[in-house]
Amino acid sequence: MASVHDFDRRWIFLIMGLLVVGLVAAGISAPMPVSEYVDSYFATIDKLPEGSIVMVSADFDPASAAELLPMYTGTIHHLLAKKMRIVNVCTWPAAPPYTASRFAEIAPMYDAVYGEDWVELGFLPGDDVAMGTIGQSLRSAYPRETKNNMAYDDVPLLRDCGDSMGNIELLITMSAGYPGILEWIAQVGGRYEIELLAGTTAVQTPDLFAFYPSQLSGFLGAATGATQYLQLVDDVAIDGSVTADKETQQSRMLVQTWAHYFMILLIIVGNVIYFTGRKSS
């Protein structure tokens, strides 16, 4: 029997391509059961009193946006629907255009006022050091907000934050790697006893189980977590504003399901060929 290495792998690329394109074009979607971690993420936001200040950190770039942007979108909808106030920061340089575009679209739906209900502080270089500085003194980390270049004390929401993390009830990070959730836990979460939530990529998700539920109150793992969360947010967001995103995610999960089945099939076929070849030789 021929070796697997003799097989032209372009056939695998072709089948995978057809499978993904075909299922995306079909646009079929199906609901998913919600996991304990996602449920806990949702409940942690939901239980906060109206007007609480929540810091959201966008720590991702376009490579991981397929997984993290739906979570970010869902979280902003959820926070504004529950009338929380959002301080948005970024420790990845490629994140600000995403956050600006999301807020520009979502904030008007909830009549959220810039500077009072949400504020954008933008990108801060320095990785762990930047996070440590934010924890130590938000004012020295960001003397001005980024959208209108207003001084820290001229922004009502930042005045209410004060100088430290004491008035911030919750910290949420959408984390694609370094710097991200592990650094937020070390530099801010554990140090200032702030409740933390995270949305992460599939690659980073296994790292988080060690921190749940002590240092991390809940997390959204990859596209699966994003889909489950959007299903929950759809019930609290303003009339149908996340329904389309939810259905897109559900449809993507069906594509992922068949891609996973195909890969498992490839593993089985590859092993059958391997063992058959070994036996005969």
Binding site: F13, M16, A63, M263, L266, I267, G270, N271, Y274, F275
Partner: peptide, 19 residues
């Protein structure tokens, strides 16, 4: 660039994932 991973993982699953 990131999406190309799906194709390479599929190929690796067939060619390298051996018991």
């Amino acid at each position: 660039m990131f999406s190309l991973l799906a194709f390479f993982i599929a190929s690796a699953a067939f060619r390298a994932f051996r018991a």
